[in-house]
Structure formats: C-alpha cells, structure tokens
Nucleic acid binder design. Sequence first.
RNA 1: GCCGGGGUGGCGAAAUGGUAAACGCAGGGGACUUAAAAUCCCCCGGGAGCAAUCCCUUGCGGGUUCAAGUCCCGCCCCCGGCACCA
Length: 830
Amino acid sequence: MSETSSAYSPGETEAKWQAIWEERGTNRFTPSELKTAENPYFNLMMFPYPSAEGLHVGNIYAFTGADVHGRFQRLLGKQVFEPIGFDAFGIHSENFALKVGTHPMDLIPSNVANFTRQLRRVGGMFDWDHAVDTTHPDYYRWTQWIFLQLFKAGLAERKEAPVNWCPSCMTVLANEQVVGGLCERCDTPVEQRRIAQWFFRITDYAERLLDNLETLDWSESTRKTQTNWIGRSVGATLRFPIAAPGDDADGAASSDEAATSHIAVFTTRPDTVFGATYMVLAPEHELVAEVTTPEQADAVNAYQAGAAKMDLVARQKTDKTKTGVFTGGYCINPATEERVPIWIADYVLMGYGTGAIMAVPGHDPRDFEFAQTMELPIRRVVAAPEDAADTPLDEAYLGEGVLVNSGDFDGLGVTDGKAAIISWLEEHDAGESRVTYRLHDWCISRQRYWGPPIPIVHCEACGAVPVPESELPVLLPRVEDFQPDDSGVSPLARVEEWYRTTCPECGAEARRETDVSDTFLDSSWYFLRYPSTDRDDVALDPEITGKWLPVDCYIGGNEHAVLHLMYSRFVTMALKDLGHIDFEEPYVKFRAHGLIVREGAKMSKSKGNVIIPDGIIERFGADTFRTYLMFLGPFEEGGDYQDEGIQGPHGFLHRLWETTINAHDGDADAGVERKVHQTIAQLTEQIPGLQYNTSIAAMMECLNVIRAGGRQAARAEIEPLVVMVAPFAPHLAEELWERFGHEGSIFDGGNWPRFDAEKARDDTVELAVQVNGKVRGRVFGPTGMDQAAAEALARADENVARHLEAATEKRVIYVPDRLLNFVVEKTPDA
RNA sequence: GCCGGGGUGGCGAAAUGGUAAACGCAGGGGACUUAAAAUCCCCCGGGAGCAAUCCCUUGCGGGUUCAAGUCCCGCCCCCGGCACCA
C-alpha cells in the first residue's frame, strides 16, 4: 500500500503529525475564520494551573476526555474551537515561588513553557494562537476591566466585614476556601477579622443562579451541589420589640415607647412563634450591648471574649454541649405578648439570617438542647394526631400536626399555620415573609502580591475612584520582597513609589488600592476571552463572541462545582445585564470527569505512586496513553490506573496498524461489514455521551471480528475503524489516513463514517430458550421469526424438550429476537 | 445528620426488566523459535460430573414479575460534598 516503512513506530508518527499540525495550522483559527465559521463548536476544558511539577495524569485525563469530545465533533463536520490557557496567578504560585526563592515573574514563564511542551506532546487539538496566560498584562488588563464594569453597576462594594483570615497564608479567604473552619490550602484554623474588603454582590443573583440550574444540561450531581451551596430557605422575618427595663408580663400597653428598637429574627417556622420562649443573639450581634443589664455585663463580656477567641473549628463543632449566658434583657413575643429572656450563645451564627433567633425549644432540636441545659421553658405548639396539647415533649417535635397553644391559630395544620401567622404578622407590622440564602457575597480582596491589582484609587476627597479604563492595565510592579505579613495589607502597601498616585477625578494626591483580586476572578471569564485574543482594544469582540458563545461543552473537575462554576455564571449574568453579551449562562453543557487512582490507591507525592506521564508517553506513545486512559473506566467516574493494563490498548493499536497496512482492495465480507456498521452505530451514540471505555471496547471487538482466524482485512472494512479511532489516537489515524491516499487531515471534511442500517442488520439471531425462567437451550433462526416458528425451533431442542416433559405448560412468553420462556407446572411424579 | 455516587470474577470493568461477567489485564496451556522477545491459538466465577448436564453466584434481608445486577421496601459498607444555616 505504501513504500514507506510498514512497522508502527509511535514516536516517529507522533512527531511527524505534531509538526504537520503545527506547520499547517490544522487546529488554529485565523481571526477571519473565527468570524466566518458556519458550524461553530466551542469545546472548553478547565485550564490548568502551571505547576513546577508539570502536567499530572489528572490533567491529561481531563484534557484527553475533552479532546476526544472535540475531535469527534470535528469529525462530524463542525468547526471546533479548542483553546487552552494558564491560570497562573494566586497563592499557589506565590507560595511556591517563596519556597524556592524564585520570583513568580521568572517562574511562571518557564512553567508555562514546560506545560506547553507537554500539552503538545499529548496531541491535544489546541488552538495555540488563542492561548491565554492570566498573569500577562494583556489578559489581566481585562480582568481589571471586568472589575470596573461590576463596580460601575454597583455590584462591587467595599465594606468592613468580618472575614476569614488565614494566619499562615496571611490573607483573607472566601467562605468557599474555608473547609471545616480550616484554610483549604494549609489546614490552619481560620480566624475572624474585620477588614475593609471588596465584595461582589453575588447574592443579588442568588435566585437567578438557582432558577437557571434547571435549564442547564449539567450533571445532576453538579446542579445539586450548586443548589445546596446557594441554600435557599423560605420563611419569615419577625420583629421582637425589646422590652423596657421594668416592663412586666402584662405591660404590653406601655411598651410603645420602648418599641423603638427590636430584634429581628429569621425563621423557617413562623408557625411555631407561640412556642418562642426565649431569644438568642449571636455573641457578635450589635444589639448585645443594648439589651445587657449592668448585673449581667461581666458575664456577657466574658462570654463574648471567649467566643471571639475560639477558632472556627472549635466553635462549629456540633457535638459539644451548648453554652450561653443570659443578658438580663427581655423582649416581647409579638404573638403571645409575653416577655421572653434574651440570651447570647455561640450556636447562633452571625453570618446567617439576622444573627438572632427566636428559640422554639419544643420544635427545634438545638433550641431544645439549649433549653434543657439552661432550664428554660419548653412549650408544645404543634401536636401530632396521637398527642394532646399538653403531652410533654422529650425531644423536639419536627413532624406534621396541628397548632396548639397558639391562640386563634389552634387547629391549623403546619402549612396553613405558616401562611396565617405570616399574614397576621404583616397586619401587625411585626414581620413579613422572607427568603434567605446560605450564599454569601464574594470577597475578592487578597492581601497578597501575586494577582492583578484592584483598579481603584483611594482619594480623601472623592473616596474610592475607579481607574479610567484608558489607563488599564494597572501593572503589577516587579518587587523582590513580596513576603506577606500579618499587617492585614498587601506587600504592595510597602511599595510607596507604586501606590502613590493622583486622583483620577480631582487630581489630588491619592493612594492606589494595594490589594489584588482573587484568582477566581481571573478564571471567571477566561473562556469569554479566548476567541477575542486577537483584539487588544476590547475585552470581547462582539461579532466573534456572538458567534462562538456560550460554550457548547465544558469538561472539568467536580472540585470546581461551587467556586469557579458559580463565579463564572455570576460574572456572565452581570455582563449580560450590562449589555456586553447576549446570554446569561456560560456553559450549555457541563460534565465532570472522575478521578484516577493507581492500583486502588490515591496518587500522592508522599506515597511516591504518582504516574509520570512523560516516561509512559516516551515508551508507548501519546496515542496508546490516551486510549488507555479513556479505556480504564467510565470517564465520568474515573478509574484505576493499573500499570500493566496499558498493554491492552497498546496491542490494539498495533494490530489496527498491521491490519490496515496489510489490507487488500477487494470487496468487504458481508458479515464483517455488519459488525463494522453495528460498531459505527454504537460509537455514534456513545461518544457524545462520553462513554469512551465501552466505545473502545466496541472497536476492539470489531477489530477482533475483522481479523478472526487470521484473515486479511478489506480496506472497506478497516477504513471506518481508522476514522473511529481518530479521536483517541489522532496521530495514528492521520498516518493511516494519509497512507490510504487521502489528502489533508482526517479531521477535516466531516469524515465520520455514515451508519447504514441495512448493512448492520443481522439475518440470524440466537434465541435463549427458558423453562420457568432458566435457560435450557439456545437456538438459531432468522431475524423476526413469529412465535410459532420460534416455539417449533425451541421444542426441537433436546434439552428443552426434556424439561417440558412431565410438565403442564401454562403460558409462553416470547420476546422476538431475544428469548422464549415456557412457563410450566411440574406434573407430580405418579 | 442531610445530599450525591458506588458495592458484579484474581484485577479494571460490561450489561434498553430478557442468555450475568462483553472488552481488557493478570494467570494457565499450546504453536512458532537454538533461546528469549514479539506474534498467533485455546482455557480462565464457584461446586458436582467421564460426559451430556445440573446446582450456586451481582453487599445483606424481604417483595413485585413468566423473568431482577437492573424496579419497590428495609438495612450494611465504601467514596465525595455540605453541616449548630434557625
């Protein structure tokens, strides 16, 4: 077939095709091609953080799975844009740079170069002309621009707020970066500090972020994770007037003047308000001082000090005994008009709802436990059918029932009671229905060096003034001492010549914002930038953005199910509202890949069982490595990397090569062709569903049929298989395609084989014959037999006949082309 | 505690309610070879049997069905996420 070498040499073939792709620009789009593409498909994968260690198997697994998807779409005839980039700002890089004593501005370019080399070697279909590096001023100029757009829209605000402070990293962390009270990066207990920070008002979008989830083609688990994170709770806000000192239980009439201040609480159970026998404020609550009586002041202060000192891990332990102190103050339950005592306790969190609760010990387990400990009254206000209004409670009752001890509302069910009590509260101006979210605003300030400076100038007269867009980027200066300190401000605050500036509005002396922004801001919009990297005058080319976005398919790790995916959805929505883009959801389809373990154990540097991809690629080639990674388990579930397992795909690709090289030009065998078309059908359906492992198994099976008994393949039999293997083994497929005599890349021109149902149809089927559900024989017959014909064949089977003897037939179940089941009753031996 | 995802040969795994274990790894046997490698062929869940064949087997216990790995009910275990969220 060809006069060139006939032995398969992956190294040579792969080097050859990587060079050709590069030279011909096979995978790159020119600006005009981006504008004119007729069938655009944006295939996105999560861009890597370019570590010094280089690509790890997890990266390659994710990228290969996404690349297979992109190459398949391209074989279907689509123009597939598959960009890649580097997420290189952030604490991760900075800490590493500090550790090895190299400046990140020197470190990152060499890491990026190494990643680039490895990514090319793996054979991804990347458009290198549109790569991004978040640390490059050409990129972060526009990250700063995004900040300014949100600022102008009122979605960025600076406020002093309690923030999570990591004393080890010496920076503020977003709530999402605190895991179980520990810094997710270094596992140090996180402290609470009050610092002025920049926040994005993501909570304004909570409802939309939640509602849109239903419209997305995302996996169920990712949507659930986001739903839980947003944490929508429906309930009511209630106001409990603070009782003036000396008010007594029936002093409601005189409470008018005292009612100037009140405690607001949020509850999901307004129906239980008659059971609210005490109040609890979070220790940090601003009203604590107001309600505390002089006699209780010492105890309250001591408790507050203790709570402030306690780290979040200790505080959030749910199994510790509840603690708290009485403030000496009272407020009025608006439903019962009773005076109820006000306590402070650390089981009430400042960060949720209003930081205060009405305690209903009868119907909330935490309040019940607290009431028992403190000997506070417990009152039943919901009764199950078997309970009376005065049946004592030995634990909080959470179930359905009717309201009792609730005045005019007695007898209502829980659901009706909620509605009725909310109306009553609204009429009396004591509360209203309310929805609360667990989601917090996104704190984007970082008191570190390695990030984009937040483009704001602080002026004494004008306040926080945005840097004019024409002056972007605000360049991150190269400073040699970027060690963070405990001052609560960025190392940039030590660089006077940098932060001293003039106010863009009044020209007075002013000071630059010295915090940098969160890395998650860099990655919240990178996919928007990819197709517009040819433009240096705008962030987004409107025409190209309109054509290519939103992203058709996004593949990445589920560890980003909340942070990155939530933030990028928010930024996209905000940009839409500002008129910059015309869609509000960035990713039409998202799929999370699974995790790779090795020989049943998690890979880790400390265990020394990390797979080094370079060595494997050198030995087996990228095509074999890719195919094996996709074969070893379901892509969305991950799998176990067994070192010897690569032999399977290795042998498969070698046999495919040999079979193709030695194919003849004669007619295809009908039986073999049938198998080929059945394989086409299966792959055409399974590859878009990311069922790569079974797709590869099907191709192996098909090749086994083609080669059965050592027969020589016809070119017409093997050629479709060469195309189908192309997404997995692109270099091998290109080479064989060329040797078939085709011009150009196999990936151009929509070469995916067409399925022919006629050729795929079996004319003979094997039918399982059961007697009472147990297989007693197998018979062969023509496809589509009627039941009579099938029964005749079955009864002729010796073993089947034997089982039907001495039995009374009750009925026969026939599933055409699959099985025949005789249901019989054994005749008793007589 | 709540929400996801799992539990099938020695191992990775496959199976629209319809022949459990496809495909592959490892293992065993054989062919070729001076030998090895490579390649090719055969066997490969457990038990009984010379064999035909029969019995058992998808974490455990029930149920629905002619038929259950698959559906329903009740449990156990593993992995991931959330968790004093009022």
